[in-house]
Design a protein around this nucleic acid. Sequence first.
DNA 1: CGATATTTGTCCGTATGTATA
DNA 2: GTATACATACGGACAAATATC
Lengths: 255, 255
Amino acid sequence: MTTTITSPSLDLAAPPTRPTRDSFWTRIAAELAEAIARGVYPPGERLPSEHALAEQYGVNRHTIRRSLASLSSQGLLRVTQGSGTYVEDFAVELTLARRTRHQQSMAQAGLRGVLRVLDAGTVRATAAQARALQLPARSALLRLAVLGEAEQAPLHVGERFFPLPRFERLEAVVRETGSITAAFTAHGVADYTRRESRVTAQMPEPALAAQLRQPATRPVMLVESVNVDTEGVPIEFARTWFAGDRVTLTVTHDE
Amino acid sequence: MTTTITSPSLDLAAPPTRPTRDSFWTRIAAELAEAIARGVYPPGERLPSEHALAEQYGVNRHTIRRSLASLSSQGLLRVTQGSGTYVEDFAVELTLARRTRHQQSMAQAGLRGVLRVLDAGTVRATAAQARALQLPARSALLRLAVLGEAEQAPLHVGERFFPLPRFERLEAVVRETGSITAAFTAHGVADYTRRESRVTAQMPEPALAAQLRQPATRPVMLVESVNVDTEGVPIEFARTWFAGDRVTLTVTHDE
DNA sequence: CGATATTTGTCCGTATGTATA
DNA sequence: GTATACATACGGACAAATATC
């Protein structure tokens, strides 16, 4: 089990800024969060409807919605139109290490990982892509848009770029096997390692949120990474968006 | 300069779910994002006021606010009450590696880093903390709440736990020098390395957002990390919240 | 399967408060 | 102090998704 990464319930020190009189929605959000923490609403449980909460707290429904939106984006709640608002339970732990393998990460988490090719094509490298892959600008690249799933639930989606003509037949193999590693092997790459990963937190665009099947109110993690072969030659540049909802990234530094 | 981590403007493939007719606020957000991308509103520029935008798009001001909130949480805009809405420019790159040193990371980014102690005290280890530090449950720990700044701007804030009585005098040294490394040295720890880091994206609580001086609408990155001395004995367990606004984490895997 | 009620999502309009210039 | 701009809150209406009968 993962050590629970709780919401930042820190009273690190008094806020250095203003002693603003809290707004209604802030106070209500805090009260609901505490109720959830104390198990009044256990994981999976449905909260009272917005209408009911509004009545209960004596505020307008919009005010309640503001509170719920906040808690939802902090990862405590999941809101579903037409159904209700539910208390969330927690996330899959993925490993980001020198020898990162998608399937392995999944297996580690006790899940069966599937990699699906959404789209494929040939593109010319942008300046940034060329730099990452140590190629001349505007080199030809194979672009794969892929979706990583486990137990029906999408965990990440992204685009991966491979130098051409070296990896010309890659798409077919990935589609067949659902594995990048297998495809590399088929291209004579016996082994490869991850050189670097860059992580940022973002709010997803609606389309991205839909693909990851997570609310647009919850953050995603964008990981930009470069894989190199045993010679140190870059063979893949990837931009992967992870569902912040369901994924924790663990970076191990031991060698 | 960092390779620009742009917002996920991906048309990876058609959304697998529904062809929902986009809402007004979604379409307006997309149009504004494109205008920003094309330089119609360059970084630092002030957008027209909400009132003006509402008129321009022929919608209610609240609809515009929904669009701006979305773009703001994606990191494209910064909204300031009483002043206006501005196009953002980008982030500091911090390194997360086996030999992570706060001051070094800062220097790398061309900044003068300062570490300030917000609060200090003695606590008893929770189960999770004890496990991370390989100590018996409820062991005595020194807890430091620290704030990392560069150029007046807070970059991260967090709490760090150190085993007692080994690091009894740590607080004083950190307060004096503003450096954890220096404090470890003073305690006879010649060298130390980071064993593991766990990264999640969250929306900040209002208090945290205030401390990081970033809007509560933008995600933060929570990094849980363990540092060990040369013997492999854990000496620090830290939970650090990074301003998603201003920070990119780079994980290097090369040894 | 279809009809209906429930629940959340979007949008409008208005009013008042608060921060900034 | 005044004007401007964003923040919060209220009330109402209808749409869209879901659940239920």
